Computed example of a mutant assay.
Amino acid sequence: MIGHRISGAAVVAGIAGQPVAHSLSPIIHNAWLAAGGIDGVYAPFAPRNAAGFQTLVAAGRAGLVQGLNVTAPFKEQAFALADDATAAARLTASANILTFEDGRVRADSSDGIGLMRGLKEQAPELALNGRAVIMLGAGGAARAAAGALVEAGAEVRIVNRSLERAEALAADLGPSVRVMPASAAFDGAALIINALSVQPDVDFDRIAPGTVVMDMTYKPLWTPFLMAARARGLKTVDGLSMLIGQAAPSFEALFRRPPPPLDLRTLLLAHLGEAPA
C-alpha cells in the first residue's frame, strides 16, 4: 500500500454486508488502487439491518459513494432498490454490484461470472451443457450462480432447508431449475456447489468418481466440505477462485476502469496464511 495517496478528490466505493469484517474484497480492491496509483478508496460498510442498507443506498444517490459491492444478506434488497438493472441482475433478481450516477442506482451481478471463471480455472475439463448441477442453498450468491449455470446449459437441482425460498428461485429461473430432496438430488451430478454459510452434511462415499465439488466459502480456503471431497479423490474448486473471478468486473463497474495487473491469488493466500494447493 506504500505510495497509495488519497486526496480530497478520491473516488469512494466499498462493500456492504452483515457481517462484513471477514471480507477480502477491501484487500483486493485497495491493492488494485495502490498498484494503479488510483486516487480512490474501497471501504467496508456493515449496515445493521435492511433499514440501514437503504440509508447507505440513499447516501449513494446523494453522491457520497460511487458504487458498492453487496454481500449477504442484502443482495436481493439491492436489486429491489435499483432504478434499472443489467440482464444478469434481472435474471436472478439479486445484485452484488450497485453503481450510482446522477441520483440513480443501477444493479448488476458478477457472481455468475465469478463462478464460471473459477470453474474454468480449477476444473477446465468440466462440461456443463446438459449436465446436472447440485446447488446447496438458495440465497443471493446461489441465485446468481444458478442463473449462470442455466445459461451454460446445465440442469440445476436446488437442495435447501427452506422449500419456499428454493421454489421461488426455481420459479424465477425456469424449467432448467428444480427443487429436489437431498436423498434424490445427487444421482448423476457433474458438479456439487455449496452456497450455504454453514457446512453441509454430504456423504461423499455416495458421490460418483469424476464429480467436481465447489465451496463458495473462502475462509478457510480448505473447508471441511472440500477436504472431505478431496479425501474421496474428487476434483475440487475453492471459493477464492470465484471471489477473484467476480472482482475484476466489480472494480471496473465501481471505479470506471479495468484493474491493473496483479497476482491476486498469491496476495490473498498470504493474507489468509494459506499455502498454495
Rank of each mutant, 00 (worst) to 15 (best):
A127S: 06
A127W: 00
A189N: 03
F251P: 06
M214E: 04
A185E: 05
G52K: 07
V198K: 10
F204I: 08
R257G: 06
G40M: 09
T71H: 12
P259N: 00
A93G: 05
A35D: 02
D201S: 14
S7E: 02
A146H: 00
R117V: 01
M180W: 03
F45W: 13
G112C: 08
A154Q: 02
L264K: 07
F204Q: 00
A247D: 07
D187I: 02
T211A: 05
A51F: 02
L240K: 05
D84P: 02
L91M: 11
V237S: 00
I27D: 13
L68S: 04
G3D: 11
H29T: 08
S110P: 11
S250K: 04
E252P: 00
K235M: 10
L243P: 03
Y218M: 03
G63I: 14
A107V: 10
A141C: 03
D108L: 12
A62M: 13
Y218T: 10
V12K: 06
V202W: 08
P259I: 06
P261C: 13
A145H: 09
N96G: 00
A275C: 05
Q199M: 14
S23K: 13
S241D: 09
D84T: 14
V65W: 11
D83E: 09
F186C: 02
A277V: 14
A34V: 09
A78R: 14
V237G: 04
N30S: 06
P260C: 07
P259S: 07
S94W: 02
R90S: 04
A231M: 08
R143C: 11
A166R: 11
P261T: 04
G60F: 05
I158K: 00
H4I: 12
L98R: 01
D172C: 15
P259W: 06
F225M: 09
T92D: 15
S23R: 10
A93V: 03
N49H: 07
A9G: 15
A9M: 12
L191W: 01
L68Y: 03
N96W: 10
A59I: 07
E101M: 01
F100Y: 09
F186D: 06
A190N: 08
G17A: 13
I244H: 00
P224T: 03
P175Q: 05
A146D: 01
H29M: 15
L56I: 04
F186Y: 09
L56N: 07
T223C: 02
I193E: 02
V179E: 04
A62H: 12
L68D: 15
G210T: 09
D172A: 15
K120T: 08
Y42A: 03
E252M: 13
L128S: 00
G112R: 03
P258M: 00
A228V: 11
A171K: 12
N194M: 07
A16M: 09
V12W: 03
A43S: 13
A190V: 11
I134A: 02
V156I: 02
D187Q: 11
Q122L: 12
M216F: 15
A148D: 04
R61M: 06
N49L: 10
S176L: 12
T236V: 15
G137S: 12
L262C: 06
K120L: 10
I134C: 01
R104L: 15
L196W: 01
L226R: 05
Q122R: 05
A144T: 08
